[in-house]
């Protein structure tokens, strides 16, 4: 039986500056550990309980809502400069439970559990009746559009051949009939104009990622027109990432070294993140 008074929790306001600091630390943690998809930004703090922690510090038990931005997780753009995905583009929200430790004025994440889900079709069409919805990422038309866009990108450039890392987003546009896709790529040790068998190309040790937007449109001649624009990011030296106590590093780091598209079971751009123990 512990001596002294039983330690209880306190409930500061959700918009209290200290609560917001804890929530921002949580969002930063999400974006550093998302395996694929887009960076998320804080939208609302749903609830907060602050537990004293022995021998020192406090643990913030937080429920927060996030929104998807237009910055891919491999994009080095600071979150503050990323735009929130708008409702008419078919927004995606995140729902997260966090335990964040505050000790010596520093916040660190003890545990995280997040699920993301796209807005409902009904809600999208309320604000924009004709806007296309998100398409399943494993749809054959989506996969074909990505392959065509990537081939066009590689054909247009000199230097490294870029491999597909993941398909991030896709929509079927009705008029003109088109498939709009967004996907991440990475540089390989092959030269783009000399590639015979892309399967034999290897990702560079010093990773160089890129992010592409493509549009494949059926034309009147029965063929298709392909438009693609890619942004290639600066190379990323391989650095070990610090992990919270009890967290597993393996499955949560971005898909570095893998060229396989990362899809959710439903083929939709939903992501989940579960890290560390839930105990306070």
């Amino acid at each position: 039986v512990p001596h002294g008074p039983v330690l209880g929790y306190r409930e500061p306001a959700c918009d209290d500056p200290e609560t917001e600091q804890a929530a921002l630390a949580a969002v930063d943690y999400i974006n550093r550990h998302l395996p694929h998809g887009y960076k998320h930004i804080l939208n609302q703090i749903d609830s907060v309980k602050v537990w004293p922690r022995r021998p020192t510090g406090e643990v913030f038990d937080l429920e927060i809502d996030t929104l998807e931005t237009t910055c891919h997780v491999l994009d080095p753009t600071p979150l503050a400069n990323c735009s929130v995905r708008q409702l008419k583009e078919h927004a995606v929200e995140g729902d997260c439970d966090f335990n964040v430790l505050k000790q010596d004025g520093q916040f660190s994440v003890l545990s995280a559990k997040c699920d993301s889900s796209p807005d409902s079709a009904e809600d999208v069409h309320k604000v924009c009746p004709d806007c296309p919805l998100l398409a399943p990422l494993n749809d054959s038309r989506v996969v074909h559009a990505v392959e065509a866009a990537l081939a066009t990108f590689n054909a247009q450039k000199s230097g490294s051949y870029f491999q597909l890392v993941e398909i991030s987003r896709a929509q079927f546009v009705p008029l003109p009939a088109s498939v709009s896709v967004e996907f991440a790529v990475a540089a390989t040790d092959c030269v783009a104009k000399e590639v015979v068998d892309p399967a034999k190309c290897n990702l560079l040790a010093e990773k160089q990622y890129g992010f592409c937007k493509g549009m494949v449109t059926e034309n009147v001649a029965g063929g298709e027109d392909v438009a693609v624009t890619c942004t290639v990011f600066q190379t990323q030296p391989v650095l070990p990432q610090p992990q919270p106590d009890g967290a597993e590093a393996g499955p949560l780091t971005p898909a570095q070294g893998s060229a396989a598209p990362a899809l959710s079971p439903a083929g939709l751009p939903a992501a989940s993140l579960v890290v560390g123990p839930r105990a306070v």
Partner: peptide
């Protein structure tokens, strides 16, 4: 004798403090 001090009544409804959930920064979906 004990006199009741004059306390002015607040004008209009007293604002309700809702500590949670916090403000929506962008939009709700």
């Amino acid at each position: 004798k004990v006199a009741q001090p004059s306390v002015p009544a607040p004008e209009g409804p007293v604002p309700v403090v809702r500590p949670c959930p916090g403000r929506i920064r962008y939009f709700n979906i």
